[in-house]
Amino acid sequence: MTKTFAQLGFPGRLIAVEGLDGSGKSTQIYLLKRWLQLQGLRVFFSEWNSSELVKSATSKAKKRELLSPTTFSLIHATDFADRYERQLVPLLRAGYLVLCDRYIYTAFARDTVRGCPPNWVRGIYDFAALPDLTFFFRADLEVSLNRILDGRPQLKYFEAGMDLRLSTDPYESFRIFQGRILEQYLAMSGEFQFLLIDANQPIEAQQNVVRDLIADRIHLDAFRRGQTVKGS
């Protein structure tokens, strides 16, 4: 689909954040949610890969390293469809501000890096409307990598892109994998009108930019609890 929820006449608005692991986007969307909630607005937050229904299949598959690029892509699309149909669309019909930590662009970037044909992936997600605003948190690759790798965490198999056989060292694999995902993100940044946020800035400075952009582009008063929803 090439239309946003606003263009489709939904009373709600969907705001998505995208970026590499370690770009600080989850912190930013959390602060955004708090700001909107504390003003008494109707807000809902949804995370990538979190549908209860599909979770057990996904986590089992990941643990046993059972996924190919194709099934990896499809199982995440299933998860997304479940959240989209059961939560996002009804809430947007009911006039909510829906905040998504990752949206279809995550799939576009990751699945393409894994070797799935880009048009196939985009075609699958064609049932989903586009976000009204997409923030892309762009940190230097090294900064994102260091945020994740500094604690020498136990990197998970798929998270590190080990299935791509880029390197036998999980840390090295993760670096190459994240670099390729960043390239994909940047390549589609213009096409989908990402709002680029400099994620090398202090948390507060980034949050300022985000809040200003939202206040500027969305009439927040319309989302106050108790306010009648037009067109729902």
Binding site: A57, A61, A77, E85, F127
Partner: peptide, 30 residues
């Protein structure tokens, strides 16, 4: 990969249309 979960979800009749479709596609791809 997903046959168990697909059965569970079907018994609860909780899957919406596109989800069901993609779940089956995952099963098929596997």
């Amino acid at each position: 990969l997903v046959s168990e979960e697909l059965n569970l979800a079907q018994n609860g009749n909780t899957l919406s249309h596109t989800t069901m479709s993609l779940f089956y596609a995952t099963d098929f791809a596997d």
